Simulated assay, not measured.
Amino acid sequence: MILDITPKEVKFYGKDLATTDSLNKKFGMNSSYTDMTGQVVKRKINSFDNENFINIKNGYYSFKTTDKINWTISNETKKAENYTLQKAITQFGGRNWTAWFCKDIPFNEGPFKLRGLPGLIFELADDKKNFIYNLIKSQELPGIFATEDFLESNFGNKAIPINEKQKHKLIMEFYNDPFAFERNNLNKSNNDLRININGKEIHNVDELNTQTKSMQEVIRKYNNPLEIDKAMHYPIY
């Protein structure tokens, strides 16, 4: 992931998004990349008001949230190379977090939405160790890195503003029928069509239903977002 701090905005996004965008610009390519982390955000500097970006079905959407973080700062410190890090804890997104921040780096930012400490967060982890972040490189760029082709839009698909209720509806629609497009084509052809899903050739609606149930199992199995208190509660059919 990349934490992109500019004089006016802060952005957090997957490195593969930036890499794909850079290759497109350098070689005149038209590649795309879908970030499935659910952690792509941007906000004004020194703000807890986040704009979230998410891929759902075949669409790209944005929705706004306010995510105030209340930290408890400890006197405990440790050394990381030439830096002195100080410990802080908080509860956010239904998880307990421990952060190690550096007062000598005067940015009160950190991974995803976890910000607001008097220094840059170098290390961050939840107590179940589901999400672990470590600062591995810091780089000052000569100018602001343009993100409009992969963050504000997803390689040609401009983010459509929605609210939380609409987001929930879209996610449930995908879960209920993840292969809706394929199902529609199969119905139109009266089953006289061959569809490839994950390397498996589908010949009829019954086989598609089997693949649908398998996909729903996968969605439920990996239903572990960073903000676990906002996790979807998927039914089992």
Rank of each mutant, 00 (worst) to 15 (best):
N187K: 15
A146H: 01
K137D: 12
P111M: 04
G110N: 04
I236C: 00
D177H: 04
D16T: 10
I219S: 04
S32N: 14
V218Y: 01
T98D: 07
T6P: 06
K165R: 11
L141M: 13
G110V: 02
D126E: 03
F101A: 02
L151T: 11
N198P: 00
I121L: 01
I5A: 01
I144W: 09
K165Y: 14
F150I: 07
D104T: 00
T19I: 14
N190G: 01
D192F: 13
K44Q: 07
L85C: 03
K26H: 08
I171L: 15
V218E: 08
P111I: 09
D192V: 12
T65G: 01
S32F: 15
E201L: 12
V218M: 10
W100Y: 15
S22D: 06
I197F: 00
K129Q: 10
Y222S: 11
F122A: 03
F107A: 00
F122W: 04
M232Q: 15
E217S: 14
R43A: 09
K165P: 00
K221W: 03
F150M: 10
M232Y: 04
Y83I: 04
N204Q: 07
L17F: 07
I219A: 03
N198C: 03
A159T: 04
I136V: 13
P106G: 02
N223F: 01
A80Y: 12
G119K: 08
D35A: 13
N223K: 06
N185A: 09
S47A: 11
F145T: 01
M29F: 10
F112L: 04
L85Y: 04
L17I: 09
P225M: 06
P7S: 10
Y33A: 10
K8W: 01
D4F: 00
E207G: 02
G156V: 12
T20Q: 11
M36V: 14
S47V: 05
K213A: 06
I228V: 14
L170V: 10
F101E: 05
